[in-house]
Amino acid sequence: EETYEVDGEEQLKKVEKMLRDRNLDVEVEIHNGKFVIRAK
């Protein structure tokens, strides 16, 4: 499992696309105004 923490939606979209391109399962949560992306 990998976890990424990003600020802002633009970064979120980039990271999310990169992970989905690797066929990973992606979950996004918001913690303290930051996006936390978990990939399995």
Rank of each mutant, 00 (worst) to 15 (best):
T3M: 14
L12Y: 08
V36R: 05
L12F: 09
M18R: 03
R38P: 03
G33A: 01
F35S: 01
R38Q: 03
D25K: 13
E2V: 12
K34A: 04
N32T: 02
A39Y: 09
A39H: 05
I37M: 00
E9Y: 14
M18T: 06
T3R: 12
T3D: 03
V36F: 11
R38L: 04
K14E: 13
V36A: 00
Y4D: 02
R38Y: 07
E5K: 06
V15A: 03
L19I: 05
E27W: 15
Q11A: 12
N23V: 02
G8D: 15
K13R: 14
R20D: 04
Y4K: 01
L12D: 00
I37E: 03
K34V: 10
E10I: 06
T3F: 14
I37D: 02
E9D: 07
V6D: 03
I30M: 10
H31E: 08
K34E: 01
E5W: 14
E2S: 07
D7K: 06
K34W: 07
T3C: 09
I37S: 00
N32W: 02
L12W: 07
V28F: 05
K13W: 11
H31R: 14
A39I: 15
V36E: 02
G8N: 15
E29A: 10
L19H: 02
D7Q: 10
N32G: 10
I37F: 01
V26K: 00
Y4N: 01
F35P: 01
V6K: 02
G8S: 15
K17P: 01
E5S: 07
V26S: 03
D25N: 12
D25W: 15
K17W: 02
L19E: 03
D21P: 00
V26W: 15
N32Y: 05
E2P: 07
I30P: 04
D21W: 04
V36Q: 04
E1F: 14
K13P: 00
D21F: 04
K40T: 13
F35L: 07
H31K: 13
K13H: 11
Y4H: 03
D25H: 14
E27P: 00
L24P: 04
A39N: 03
I37V: 12
I37H: 00
N23D: 12
E27H: 13
N32V: 04
I37W: 00
R38H: 10
E1T: 12
V15T: 04
K34Q: 05
E29P: 00
Q11R: 04
R20C: 13
G8C: 15
N23Y: 10
M18N: 04
H31Y: 12
E16R: 08
F35G: 01
V28K: 00
E16Y: 15
T3I: 15
E27M: 13
E1L: 12
V15K: 01
R22L: 12
K17E: 10
Y4S: 01
M18Y: 12
T3S: 10
T3N: 06
F35I: 10
I37T: 01
K34T: 05
I30Y: 14
E10V: 08
I30T: 07
L24E: 04
D25V: 14
F35D: 01
E16H: 08
E1I: 14
Q11W: 11
E10Y: 06
T3K: 10
E16W: 14
G33Y: 02
I30K: 09
K14L: 13
E5M: 10
N23T: 02
E9P: 11
L19M: 04
E29W: 14
K13N: 06
K40R: 12
R38S: 06
K13V: 08
N32I: 03
R20V: 05
E9I: 14
N23K: 10
V6M: 04
K14S: 07
T3H: 09
D7V: 14
G33K: 01
G33R: 00
L12C: 15
G8L: 11
R20F: 08
V15N: 00
D7I: 13
V15E: 02
E27S: 14
E10Q: 06
H31W: 10
R38W: 05
N32K: 07
E29S: 14
N23I: 01
V26C: 11
Q11F: 07
L24Y: 13
T3P: 03
E9H: 10
Q11Y: 07
E2H: 11
V6H: 02
